[in-house]
Amino acid sequence: MEIYILLGFVLLLSIFLGLELIAKVPSTLHTPLMSGANAISGIALVGALMLSSAGQMQDLLAFGAILFASINVFGGYLVTNRMLSMFKKK
């Protein structure tokens, strides 16, 4: 149980940190920020890779999780990069 208290602590601190980091972002960057954050939520890929393999069902679930998380990661970062490359000051 101690591990959950520790990780819960990490969770709360990260949320506060996130709130502090984002609070003053100019509205110009709202879309890239959201899209960049969306790419980060593809971190589920790491979770998917940690799954165990026991039987066909588990393999199928793991495959699905890896597939969809990968779409999220690759698509998210690329589209963010494409968007940011358009933001230019003349």
């Binding site: 990490v10 940190l17 980091l21 959201m34 954050a37 969306n38 589920a44 790491v46």
Partner: peptide, 15 residues
């Protein structure tokens, strides 16, 4: 996963 997930959760909430 916890740190990255929470950051996304917080930023989405602010927006």
């Amino acid at each position: 996963l916890i740190v990255a997930g929470s950051l996304v959760g917080a930023s989405g909430l602010i927006l």
